[in-house]
Design a protein around this nucleic acid. Structure first.
Lengths: 367, 367
DNA sequence: AATGATTTTGATAACGTTGTCATTGACAGC
DNA sequence: GCTGTCAATGACAACGTTATCAAAATCATT
């Protein structure tokens, strides 16, 4: 509580965290007794006894209310409230082989893009009564495989990935689960099941076009060596060639560890290549690193050097001169994915299994 | 596949995502048959039959191998591999009332700090065989309550929060679950159960001291009005007074929506208060906004204005002149929390239930 | 060799739900 | 009134595991 005697280092201080009392008990000393904390969780049987019906009828009343007559339904409703009953998801899942959990696996929990998408997806699915939980695969096949194994055991209602599954073995396992699988963030020819994505190859092509239109003719690529980065590079190369732009350098990294990586990449390419109009960075963290390094080197952006990023980084927009990026609406991706999963899970017949998102160019002055 | 005929907009492009074949099948056309995809999941009984023991012995061999004789253990091991058995977590949870899921709830999945902590915690717990899943509460009591209700049903092995639980009713529910509960990010006097935290009040005090030592005498606070922000403000006020520093302004926000919020806050305080040496921002996003706005206004940092942040933002370190921050090691917090949970879950007797993290000052030149 | 202590194993009965099928009752058509 | 149809309800038996307790096998001790 910080009663400071002198102005030295602070002594041990507890936070005085606010405690908010229960609205009910503070309201007017509720005279009902006992109902506060059911020592033992109520089961279907308890509810059934109270409502004077059979357990199975309670189960039905909760899952398909329209199949139970109104009067019993009301009695059951009442009994549920009185007992504070909530379904035991384990028993339910054991018997039915289904659960209301939707599992999402992010390759990286630290990515702003993925977080945006997952947040949006969570909102949609939770509103529909699903429990949306996120695990991580850390861009590692091993972890991905472990995660998918655990899926095999959990049999969630659906699974979502921030990316596409590359390992054939894992693809087979997922197919065998017979639940909706949602892949994202790319546009593979043969998705496992459902997909909300965009073409990374096209993103690379679009990047080349944007740089070309702004008058750049000697360009370089900075990005990840594998996965989606490789796809963007491929498109970039292709369109550079088609437009007659010279691709004077490719800096390929294995892992994006932070801003300093982008700084190092820009330094590297500038040392080796004097003739350079612009760079395309296949993600915003790298682009931001370049932007910062350019300023440190006294290179004026975009006059001396154009920098084009990929993503929709909040911060990138704000740092002068503002990073121009190609990207998608990540939140939209998550929302769409969530809605498509819900449609599928509610057994609707018209199933749209694939959705393609458009790429957008956010012009903020850095190219 | 992007076969470009002309240089207009790209035609429909599929990504050529790499497909990686199963190592086994590509290795040397494995002649074993059938073992690829067990049509029906194997159960304990199947394994038991194959190993010629009883199901319960299999169960024991998997959970407490030392309680089963070596020869049977080997037979069982073999049978498990042959059948591809994996435990059915629902059946296990139903019978035992336990599960190997550790659930974490983040108030905000977009926070870099929280993500760092959760990532680190995930690593530790997954190594120990737990499934670490993250849900979100969105800084909303309603969502927090819903999440805690679902806990009541799931009975995970343990629960963790990026923060402390304020609602008395929810605290009671959590206590009633009889599982390890981990609160973080603050230092309340009466934690529910376990805690890895630091004093936010002290952080505010430390902020005042840092600014004082750098020669600032007229300071302001920018930060959230509630929760931990309020605690930091409290400490800041206190120590400012003790040191004879003048607190010339407090800008209180309800929600940190992005960098622009920080920019607006700085503008607001500068308009209303000409005499200002330095500001303490209770989070890095706000501080970064201030830094950017200061540059836009032609205010030189730290000569004209000192800016002190709270957190450990990667980006904040890189943007000239580099944001000085007070913070903790978020990854360390997550790791510690994970390790303490593991110790508790493995039934060790010496239980350290509380841990206090030290605050660190990252001096990068902005004060 | 007999006794007791200890380790190792198994039989049985749940955990709480839901799928399956059977039963009851209500109502229309003959 | 009798039959057939359909809606509403219930009885029963699982789902795959583990807790409990009892039995069997092993080992150490006298």
């Amino acid at each position: 509580m910080g009663n400071d005697s002198e102005a030295g280092l602070a002594t041990f201080v507890y936070d005085e965290v606010v405690r908010i009392p229960d609205a009910r008990s503070s309201n007017q000393s509720d005279p009902r007794e006992g109902s506060e904390l059911p020592a033992q969780r109520a089961s279907l049987a308890d509810v059934a006894r109270l409502a004077d019906v059979s357990p199975i009828t309670v189960s039905r009343a909760l899952r398909n209310p329209e199949r139970v007559r109104a009067d019993k339904r009301h009695r059951i409703q009442l009994a549920v409230e009185q007992t504070g009953y909530s379904i035991n998801p384990y028993a339910s899942a054991l018997k039915s082989g289904r659960s209301n959990i939707v599992l999402a696996f992010a390759s990286n929990m630290l990515s702003e893009q993925f977080s945006l998408a997952l947040q949006a997806c969570a909102e949609v699915l939770e509103k529909a009564g699903f429990l949306f939980l996120v695990g991580q695969t850390s861009y590692s096949y091993e972890r991905e495989t472990a995660a998918i194994r655990s899926l095999h055991a959990m049999k969630p209602a659906a699974v979502m990935f921030t990316g596409v599954i590359e390992l054939q073995a894992n693809r087979e396992i997922l197919r065998g689960l017979n639940i909706p699988i949602m892949e994202t963030w790319a546009l593979p020819k043969d998705p496992i099941d459902m997909l909300v994505g965009f073409s990374n190859t096209e993103a690379g092509q679009l990047a080349a076009e944007v740089l070309f239109k702004k008058g750049h003719r000697k360009v370089a690529y900075i990005g990840r060596r594998s996965g989606r980065g490789a796809l963007r590079l491929q498109g970039f190369r292709q369109r550079c060639a088609a437009l007659g732009m010279k691709l004077v350098g490719e800096v390929l990294v294995n892992e994006v560890t932070g801003l300093s990586k982008g700084r190092a990449c820009l330094s590297a390419i500038i040392e080796n290549q004097a003739e350079l109009d612009a760079v395309f960075c296949s993600n915003d963290v790298l682009a931001l690193g370049c932007l910062i390094e350019a300023r440190r080197l006294g290179i004026s952006v975009p006059t001396d050097l154009g920098i084009l990023g990929f993503g929709e980084s909040d911060i990138a927009a704000e740092i002068p001169p503002g990073l121009t990026t190609i990207g998608i609406d990540s939140a939209r991706l998550g929302r769409d994915a969530g809605e498509m999963l819900i449609a599928r899970l509610s057994g609707e017949t018209v199933e749209q299994k694939l959705r393609r998102l458009d790429l957008v160019v956010n012009d903020r002055g850095s190219v």
